[in-house]
């Protein structure tokens, strides 16, 4: 009985961690679907979001919810400017130039964050910190639950946005066929910058949701590498795939930390990633198509 409860706890912890991976992976996928770029700095954008939230809530003493909304808005504006000012310039260069560009940006962000906010881990109090629900042997942390609920809510909002609003449909159109979208009167470049903004905003949400569980520090962006496993597992072009992939990676990671010897937990996500790439390169949700010449 205890084992079953322990397992359930692990699965829920894993789901919570996986939701964060899924949210970061969602950022990758949104940008990849639209612009065929992969943003290796996504984890660092999340880190910056975390530090902005820290500044709002601790330094400026704002209410948690006000700080949350402002953080997302500021980080989204940052993402918009990042595309409009820097990444738009490399359109047309080979794909690995973009990979290296975003990696270079990641180093810069890390240094700037370290210079601005220091290299110590910081945190802030949230309404969910150190609270539990449940009874008896089954105790669940509010922090983990808040991550799961927050992710589900965010996905609902994004779903409605992409399928019901004019801008969301314009974004889908621009992702599917830039030229056709342009002919239909969609300002494709601005729409792409807005997609970057959404992706940065999602990363900021991930950072704020993560804050009761883990501290904010300069190396937080390393989570981004784990999120690759999530994105690849989901097929790197599928939004639900990214989330499911994240949850799978999170749960597998928790279980391997429990069942396998020490040291395996750190590499689990990488092993999952390589295994998926080797066995099923199109991911769980991708479809195989041959390229036309």
């Amino acid at each position: 009985m205890d084992d079953a409860v322990r397992l359930l706890q692990l699965v829920i912890n894993g789901t919570a961690a996986g939701c964060i991976y899924g949210l970061i992976a969602l950022g990758f996928v949104l940008i990849y679907k639209a612009t065929e770029m992969v943003n290796f700095a996504q984890g660092e954008i999340m880190m910056i979001g975390g530090f902005i939230a820290y500044t709002m809530i601790v330094k400026l003493g704002m209410n948690y919810w006000v700080g949350f909304v402002l953080t997302v808005a500021i980080t989204a504006a940052f993402g918009f400017l990042l595309d409009a000012l820097i990444l738009r310039r490399v359109i047309g260069q080979p794909q690995f130039a973009v990979v290296m560009l975003t990696l270079g940006l990641a180093f810069i962000f890390r240094a700037v964050a370290g210079y601005t906010w220091g290299y110590d881990a910081v945190g802030f109090a949230t309404p969910f910190t150190n609270k539990v629900v449940g009874s008896g042997r089954m105790v669940l942390g509010m922090d983990n639950l808040s991550i799961i609920v927050g992710t589900v809510l965010l996905c609902g909002v994004l779903y409605v946005f992409f399928s019901r609003t004019r801008l969301g449909i314009a974004m889908q159109a621009a992702s599917q066929n830039q030229l056709a979208a342009y002919y239909m009167g969609i300002p494709v470049r601005r729409v792409f910058s807005l997609i970057w903004a959404i992706s940065a905003g999602v990363a900021a949400v991930a950072a704020v949701l993560l804050s009761p569980v883990s501290m904010i520090d300069v190396n937080m962006g390393m989570l981004g590498f784990k999120a690759f496993a999530a994105a690849v597992l989901g097929g790197f072009g599928s939004i639900p795939g990214a989330l499911v992939g994240g949850v799978v990676v999170g749960i597998v990671e928790q279980l391997s930390g429990y069942f396998l010897p020490a040291g395996f937990q750190e590499v689990t996500s990488n092993i999952v990633l390589l295994a998926v790439l080797i066995l099923r390169p199109q991911g769980l949700f991708g479809q195989t198509i041959r390229k036309r010449v």
């Binding site: 490399v90 560009l101 270079g104 990641a106 180093f107």
Partner: peptide, 10 residues
Amino acid sequence: FGLILVLVIL
């Protein structure tokens, strides 16, 4: 290194 990389690519 990151800054120089970015400048070189741009």
